[in-house]
Simulated assay, not measured.
Amino acid sequence: MDVVNLKKKLTSFSEHWSPKLVGELDGYHVKLAKIEGDFVWHAHDGEDELFLVIDGCFRMDYRDRQVWVEAGEMVIVPKGIEHKPYARDVCSVLLIEKATTDHTGGVDDPRRVENPERI
């Protein structure tokens, strides 16, 4: 029941595409990540995924369109929808997803994090 200072947590790491666990609720993980460049095309067959931009902006690519998400905005990717985040510059995001969610959707990628570090 402690307060979590997101800005302070974000200063504690610099890796991109390596989500860090900052909280849990009812089987969901709350994570922080810094993203830059392209990620991999992937989908989550059984889980929705929420991205809330804290700082910067990023583009969520879908197979049929793209949407830009700015600081203070969020996007929810429904389960089963193929997507690929892209950030031109470093962007800080808060993610909410089921604790069982594989952030690459099972795609073999060197940035895949199976057990996110708690910060």
Rank of each mutant, 00 (worst) to 15 (best):
S14W: 02
D48N: 15
A71W: 15
A87E: 10
A99G: 12
C57E: 14
D89M: 15
V53Q: 11
C91L: 11
V40Q: 03
D2S: 13
S14P: 01
W17L: 00
L10Q: 00
P116H: 06
G37F: 05
M1Y: 05
K79H: 10
E36F: 08
L6Y: 04
H83W: 07
G27S: 01
P78S: 14
W68K: 13
E15S: 01
M1D: 07
K9H: 04
A87N: 09
P19T: 02
V40I: 10
F39T: 04
K20T: 02
F39Y: 11
A33K: 00
V107A: 08
A33T: 02
D48A: 13
L32Y: 02
E117N: 07
K20N: 03
V107Q: 10
A71F: 15
V4N: 00
D55R: 13
T104I: 05
D38K: 09
V107Y: 06
G46K: 10
Y86G: 06
F13P: 00
P110T: 03
L94T: 08
R88A: 14
P110H: 07
K8A: 07
F58Q: 14
R59Q: 09
D89L: 15
C91I: 10
R65D: 14
N115D: 08
H16L: 06
F51W: 12
K98T: 06
M1H: 07
G105T: 05
H44E: 05
N5H: 07
D48F: 12
K79S: 11
K79I: 06
I54A: 10
E24A: 07
K34G: 04
L25K: 10
W41Q: 05
I76P: 09
V93K: 08
V75C: 12
A99V: 09
R88N: 13
K84W: 06
D109L: 03
K79D: 08
W41S: 06
R88V: 12
I54T: 09
W41N: 06
G106Y: 01
I96L: 11
D64G: 10
K20A: 02
I54N: 11
L94C: 12
H29P: 00
E82R: 15
V40T: 07
V67A: 14
V75Q: 13
F13V: 02
D55Q: 12
M1K: 07
N5G: 02
P110W: 05
V4Q: 01
